[in-house]
Structure formats: C-alpha cells, structure tokens
Design a binder for these strands. Structure first.
Length: 323
DNA sequence: ATAGGCCCCCGCCAGC
DNA sequence: ACGCTGGCGGGGGCCT
C-alpha cells in the first residue's frame, strides 16, 4: 500500500502555525498507525526556503515544479498572502497541481491564493474572519462565508484561522480512516498542544465583543441572560425605544452583523458550554439555550464547529480526564 | 429526506 | 437640502 501524498504549499511570510497544524496532525495519524499512511511534504516555488512571519525558517522538501500530483494539496496562509496571490509562478503551479490532485484545501488566508488561481469561482469558501471582507472584495465570484470553521465544496475545502486548519485536517483523516481514528488523533493533538479543551478554542473565535453603544450592550447582556426568551427582532426592538428596522441597522453599523445572527451565535456559545461542562441531555441543552429542538441545535452546531455535539462532549471529557 | 412556511435581512422609498 | 427614521416587500435561509 502506498502512502497518500500530502503537499503543503508555503511562501515567504507564511504562518508557521498554519503549516505545523496540518503537518503535525497527519504525522500523528502516522504515529497512530494510519494505513495507508501520509507522506507529508512542504513545497515552494523553486524549492525556496520558507521564511515564516515569525522569523523562523522552514526548509522546503521539494519544489512545486517537480510534483506531478498530490492526494491532498494544502495552501497555507499567513501575512505574505497578498504577495503570494500576486505571484504568477506560485498561482500557476497551484492551479496546475489542483487540476491533477484529489482534495484541494487552504488554511486561513491561503484562500486568497486558491481564489487567485480561479479555483473558488462560484464556490462557497471561508478564510480567517478578519480577511473575509477582503476576500469577497477582491474575488466577487467567490461566495464568502466567514462563520464556519471550515467549508467543503466538492473537492475544494477552505478553513478559517489556526485551530480551523486542525479541524479540517481531522476531517480529512476521518474521511480516510473513519471517525474513531480521527477522534484519537484529535485527542492526541489537544493533549500535545496543552490546550484547555475545545471550548476555549471555540470561544476565542466566537465570543461576542461588548459593543460601546449602550443600547446594544444592554440588549446583548439581556440575550446572554435570557437565551430561551423570544429573541426575535421584533421582541428585541420592543425592549428598546427603536424600531426593528433601525435595530438591524444599528447591529450592522456597530457590530457588522445582524440581530438574528448575533442571537444564534450567543445561543450556540451557551449550548457549547452546557454540552462541555454538563451531562444534560441534548434536548435540555437545546431548550435552555433557546433552540427549538435537539435536532436544530445539532445542525447549527455542526455547521459552525464542524463536529457533532456528542462528539464535542466526548472529546472535552476525554481531555479533562487526560489532564 | 424533502417541502412548506415562517421569519429574517436588506434595499428602497416616503416622511420628518 | 440632507440625514435619520420606520414601513414595506421580496428573496432567501432556517426550522419544523
């Protein structure tokens, strides 16, 4: 049985952690006996070394030009993405390899390179939340959604920030070797990185900032305190002295989102906490956090975090036990 | 799984 | 004139 070829594409000022999350997860899969295993290589234009944004330097194992195909092609992100997306040699090599390869993925702002190669036209894609607007502006043909941890659209996949690349890589491993095996890799990664469990990873990216506008702040505080209330736009507006229309405008201007999306996010954050910290049945978690049913909670949870509530609970409990 | 329905979101316009 | 506001409607997404 031949190993699966994983090619990670690097460039000047790439993000070291983007690269390392992908390579380490595949490497750990090998350590745990993945069969077939993974042959992971870092490739650059001309085989040049990768001077990462942090100043550390990675030696590329091969040059993109000599690779015929990959089972999985992963373009890393990082501060150098604007230059990378404008590098004709890099973009051309990525396009060529993408056509010849199986799965094609990006981490973080690596989506810019995929988009520059035209690979994301007409597809749904995500990137680091901070750059979502830029991606949408520079590449109007791409349907950008900054919310999910990662998005898979056919054989193309894009992921958000650092932890998202781990989730995406785990999804690949699950596809190749099954859910149980992927869970073991996930547990190993979490332990290895000494992170305080999945909950913190998620809330880092989803925590709602407290707005400086007094009306909005009081409203958000109310939502957090009463997630199971009627929190429709009309009901929220009735708690203030402004109209529903004006309220949606206020959310849009001050928070860059809408009332409904904010309510859903806060409800999901609470649900994630309840799932991780308690043994409440999902139906009760759902009703306490304002979801109509366990099923709708499940769907929303998977859409945002990329794993099911029960699996999340499992991995969290395992992590706690391991420490 | 799929369909229907409800509600959200946002562009548009008319009033203040 | 000009900006802020609230109502309306359609298109779409999410829930049942």
């Amino acid at each position: 049985v031949t190993d699966r070829d994983i090619v990670v594409v690097g460039f000047t000022d790439a993000e070291l952690v983007d690269i390392a999350c992908v390579t380490s997860a595949f490497d750990l899969a090998n350590m745990l006996g993945a069969e077939p295993g993974y042959r992971v290589r870092l490739a650059t234009v001309g085989g040049a070394e990768v001077v990462c944004a942090s100043g550390l330097t990675l030696q590329a194992q091969t040059s993109l030009e000599v690779i015929r195909r990959a089972d999985t092609l992963v373009v890393s992100g990082g501060r150098g993405h604007p230059k990378a997306a404008r590098d004709p040699a890099l973009v051309q090599q990525v396009r060529r390899l993408a056509d010849a390869s199986g799965r094609v993925a990006s981490v973080c702002t690596g989506a810019m390179v995929l988009a520059a190669a035209g690979l994301l036209d007409g597809r749904r894609a995500t990137t680091h939340w901070f750059y979502a607007e830029e991606l949408a502006r520079c590449f109007p043909a791409v349907q950008v959604d900054a919310d999910p941890v990662y998005i898979r659209d056919g054989r193309l996949a894009t992921s958000g920030g650092v932890t998202a690349s781990l989730d995406l890589t785990l999804a690949f491993i699950e596809e190749d070797h099954g859910a149980e095996f992927a869970r073991r890799v996930a547990m190993g990664m979490v332990t290895y990185l000494h992170r305080p469990g999945n909950q913190a990873q998620m809330s880092i990216f989803t925590a709602t900032p407290r707005p400086d506008d007094l009306t909005l702040r009081e409203l958000i505080d109310y939502v957090v305190a009463h997630p199971d209330d009627d929190l429709s736009v009309g009901a929220l507006a009735a708690r203030t002295s402004i109209s529903p229309r004006q309220l949606t405008r206020l959310f849009s201007e001050r928070l860059g989102t809408s009332p409904g999306a904010t309510v859903r996010r806060i409800r999901l954050e609470l649900a994630a906490r309840l799932i991780a910290a308690t043994d409440l049945p999902l139906s009760q978690v759902a009703s306490r956090s304002g979801f109509g049913s366990a099923e709708s909670l499940r769907q929303a949870f998977v859409a945002r975090y990329g794993l099911s509530p029960l699996r999340y609970r499992q991995s969290h409990h395992s992590t706690v036990a391991a420490r």
